[in-house]
Design a binder for these strands. Structure first.
Lengths: 230, 230
DNA sequence: TAATTTCAATCAAACGTTTGACTTAATCAA
DNA sequence: TTGATTAAGTCAAACGTTTGATTGAAATTA
């Protein structure tokens, strides 16, 4: 039984993936030429066809590469959160949510991943191809699921309740907008880039925002239904 | 003195802009070929060079076209909001903010603009070119500014206070994420598209979120400083 | 030796742009 | 009113370049 996809351990293959990640992260699929990539990867043109079957194959492998990379850094954290959540009272969930999201914020604002991932992820959200399935399964769904679990737990709702899911989405949205809408916010604040002090300010304010949302009363209609059901 | 840019009133010119908006809205710059555009516009290849100087010129004109289109539909609303805000007590500002954002939400989820604008705006945020300046000046800045004014007024802060600006950004972010992250949310909810009932649910929940954020107490440090200054 | 990987060279197709002829409509002197 | 002149816009055809992909030989590795 083989691992995920091919498990060819070619150095060239890895260099191609890294170069492609950088390229596809900062330019559109069609805005990146295969020659550009192989030059950055110090490989031959035909290496793309050889290792990935073509440009499209390289792109898909790159998205998988990205998802795998991010997943590995997040899965432990998510698993630990699920564990902690079970062992502690529901009202501690808010802290877990805040800590996770703020840690996530720092990653997408400062981390290496923040450079390349957003462009690819948004593009796939906006105009999904089969690459979106990879991102969703390995990245977006696990994160969304775990957070929804905590949100539901904290607010005394079901994790499958649309209200929990929507609330989770809003929490994530309020976070990622500081990466997605970075250029706009920086102009409004007369800054050219986020400093660590700026990010500290952001984190403080976002934490307060998270708590305000989490502590807001659930929809009364839903609550009534739930109470009657119990 | 001429109007904005050239005021050539060619039918072909307009058809090119409309076709280009559709094309650039759903595909990347390099993913759109000039032949594709002229075919949709039922024009000749050379019309692009003739009217816009080239593909790049057409793209910039298209962004300007988009900004102008959206601006016209929003400026009246923003002006009216600024007027209303001055004539009514600060605590009414929350309603104005909610109404504007929810109206905006409906536009980007269902309206014609929601199809094409997001792709272009995000791309320019993520990798700004001179087209971003157009979007910022005509669209993003006015909206951001007016909302920040209301937010500051409601929470008893200065509109120039970073906390007001950041709060405004968070409010907008929480709104647009339902367009940007649409694909993810729809999967989580097991839907294939937003129905009008779904959107009504979204709006109800978002309104509650907005109010929770707006009513949350401002940063105590800031508040202290402000009180001392007064 | 046999299999895997790299290489320069080459391919057809698609790209954005340019060209020069053609049409249409407005301008103006006779 | 007529006929020549000019300008604006459109068109098919072609331009040189770049694109992703392929080839078969050479190099490398096992």
């Amino acid at each position: 039984m083989s691992d995920n996809e091919e498990t060819t351990h070619s150095a060239t293959r890895k260099r191609l993936l890294q170069a492609a990640l950088q390229a596809f992260g900062s330019h559109d699929y069609d805005g990146v030429s295969t020659r550009e990539i192989v030059e950055a990867a110090e490989a031959n043109i035909s290496a793309i066809s050889y290792h990935f079957g073509g440009k499209r194959g390289l792109y898909l492998a790159t998205v998988d590469f990205l998802a795998e990379k991010l997943q590995s850094g997040m899965n432990d954290q998510l698993e630990q959160i699920r564990q902690t959540a079970e062992d502690t009272p529901p009202d501690r969930s808010a802290t877990l949510i805040c800590d996770f999201l703020l840690h996530f914020l720092e990653h997408i604002l400062l981390g290496e991943m923040g450079k390349h991932a957003p462009g690819i992820i948004f593009r796939e959200q906006n105009q999904p191809t089969e690459a979106f399935d990879i991102l969703y399964e390995k990245l977006l769904a696990p994160m969304h699921h775990t957070l929804a679990l905590l949100v539901a737990r904290y607010r005394g709702q079901q994790a499958s309740d649309p209200e929990s899911i929507i609330m989770t989405h809003a929490l994530i949205g309020q976070t990622v907008i500081f990466r997605i809408g970075r250029t706009t916010l920086l102009r409004r604040l007369n800054l050219s880039a986020y400093s660590t002090a700026n990010i500290e300010t952001l984190k403080n304010q976002l934490r307060r925002n998270y708590l305000a949302l989490l502590n807001s009363p659930p929809d009364s209609t839903e609550t009534d239904i739930r109470h009657h059901a119990e």
